[in-house]
């Protein structure tokens, strides 16, 4: 998992993703891309890639699947004064 220097990241469960790309459009920092692999549902699923995540949660709320995305925030928030 690509982790940011600040430790924020998301986990996308490949088998819950339907490839709708709403999370990709939602992310203000373009952290998510659509992958080329196909999951068990037959969709090209989204992947977390770029380490600029702020754990804002927009992708979580944009995603229609209940548990496809989990957002992790770094234990200690630093740097953003």
């Amino acid at each position: 998992m690509a982790q940011t220097s600040e430790g924020n990241y998301i986990v996308i469960n490949p088998d819950e993703c339907k490839g709708c790309r709403l999370c990709i459009e939602a992310c203000p920092f373009q952290c998510i891309v659509i992958g080329s692999d196909i999951n068990s549902l037959g969709y090209q699923y989204a992947k977390f890639e770029k380490p600029d995540c702020t754990a804002c949660g927009l992708c979580f709320y944009a995603c229609p699947e209940p548990g496809a995305i989990t957002v992790y925030k770094a234990e200690k928030t630093g740097g953003k004064a």
Binding site: A55, P66, G67, V71, Y72
Partner: peptide, 29 residues
């Protein structure tokens, strides 16, 4: 630490079409 995750008021798995389903029946998007 987990900031946003699947709400607890959902079942862990959705037994609509056999056991262990984790995605809804809704269309993408």
């Amino acid at each position: 630490m987990v900031q946003y995750s699947k709400p607890r008021s959902f079942y862990d798995t959705f037994e609509r079409k056999g056991e262990g389903q984790i995605s809804t029946h809704y269309c993408p998007g």
